[in-house]
Simulated scan of single mutants.
Amino acid sequence: MTTSTSPLLSARGVRIVFPGRHGAPDARAVDGVHLDIRPGEIVALVGESGCGKTTLARALLGLVEPTAGRITFDGRPLEYSGRSLKAYRKRVQLVLQDPSGSLNPRHTVYDAVAEGLRIHGHGGDERAVVADALSRAGLRPPERFFLRRPHELSGGQRQRVVIAGALVLEPELLVADEPVASLDASVRGEILALLLRLRAELGLSALVVTHDLGLAWNIADRVAVMYLGRIVETGPVEQVLTAPRHPYTRALLSVLPEAPGEPVVLTGEPPDPSRVPSGCRFHARCQVLAGGGADRAGVAEACRGRDPEILDGGGATQVACHWAHAGKG
């Protein structure tokens, strides 16, 4: 699916630390991430709540400046001046989880979609551009929707309006944060099919942030699984999801309805970025370590005491796991 080997968007060694309040330890929300997105590629960033995926997405959008590391777009480092960010956000657009939260209830559909054009000073035929974006987003005939307000639309139609609002600026990359989480199952498939069609028609790239591996399977070319601020497994979606090597990826997959065997119930505390453990950050909840598998492979000590290397963010299948590298994963 990719059209080029050089990344459109690239994160290198990105760290985002939020200072703790009232003497509390700092929170390492993103703790060393390399991630590439190539032209025409859809990458799913997957993990449970609190793993840092939304903070990373915000950094990739230029909404949060990294504490360390750098982000480049089209080969150039992201700059944080107002003018540079405005130009950048024309090329990289956000699609939020809850369309009703991102649409002003007092605005018509036309005004909601035209807002980006007005902010960025579009000089052409506004009405034609708005109509084209609505049509591409599957709201046809578009003129029928111009004067409607969000409360007059279904959830799926509202999400299409949000997508149309992103499309009017002809971006190269969409960052979609849980784009179908608030929608009924019947509508989810339609929105995912729309995103795939937009990629085919416009050559769009996308980063889809989700906790749902099933969604990743249906839409992504490549998946990056995130745990406690770091990507722990990445690769082509079919390879990672049919032959997962990291115990965390295996646990996430085990709870899908179609998964074979019993679901893996993760014990221990959910990820807390202000208390990142030594060694492998997953070791305190790892079913392989708890079940003696790491001991048998001779890596239990490494799991508890040695941090696995940061994955390089490219297209190859990679895993940050001592047990998997011992030939067991």
Rank of each mutant, 00 (worst) to 15 (best):
T2A: 12
E262L: 11
L63V: 06
Y88S: 04
V264L: 13
V168W: 06
C303L: 09
A251F: 03
A24T: 12
Q93S: 12
R58W: 07
G124T: 10
R281Q: 07
V187Y: 06
L174C: 05
V33S: 12
D312H: 14
D36V: 02
P19T: 02
R199M: 13
H120T: 04
S100T: 15
H34R: 14
R197H: 08
L45D: 00
V180C: 04
G214C: 07
A112G: 05
V14I: 14
V17C: 03
T108A: 04
Q318Y: 00
N104K: 04
E115Q: 08
D125N: 14
L289T: 09
G235Q: 09
V43M: 08
A181H: 13
P105A: 12
R38M: 06
G40F: 11
V240Q: 02
L194E: 12
L35M: 11
G20D: 08
A297D: 13
S274I: 06
D31L: 10
R15C: 12
L103F: 14
F282A: 07
E309A: 15
A57R: 14
G268M: 07
R89D: 13
G124N: 08
K328F: 02
L60K: 06
E238D: 12
D74P: 02
N104Q: 07
L60I: 10
I231S: 09
G298M: 01
I219S: 00
R158W: 07
G235T: 08
A302C: 01
L35N: 09
R250T: 10
G123F: 05
G82P: 05
A220H: 01
R127S: 14
V95I: 15
R306T: 10
L96I: 05
R76M: 10
R160G: 01
V276H: 09
G315R: 15
E115W: 05
V14C: 08
P25T: 08
G123E: 12
F18C: 13
S81M: 04
Y227N: 06
R222G: 10
A128W: 01
D36P: 02
G279L: 08
P270N: 06
V223T: 11
E258Q: 08
A316H: 09
V161F: 02
S278M: 05
V14D: 06
P150D: 05
L198F: 09
A251K: 01
S182R: 11
D212M: 15
R21H: 13
V92K: 02
A290S: 14
S102T: 12
G305E: 13
D74Y: 03
H122E: 10
L147Y: 02
A302N: 00
I231K: 11
A59R: 11
C321G: 09
W323G: 01
L85D: 08
A68I: 07
L45I: 05
A29H: 04
L192Y: 11
E126I: 10
V255G: 08
R275W: 01
S254D: 09
D132T: 11
L94F: 15
A128C: 04
F282Q: 07
A181R: 05
I310L: 15
I219W: 09
E269C: 03
R230K: 13
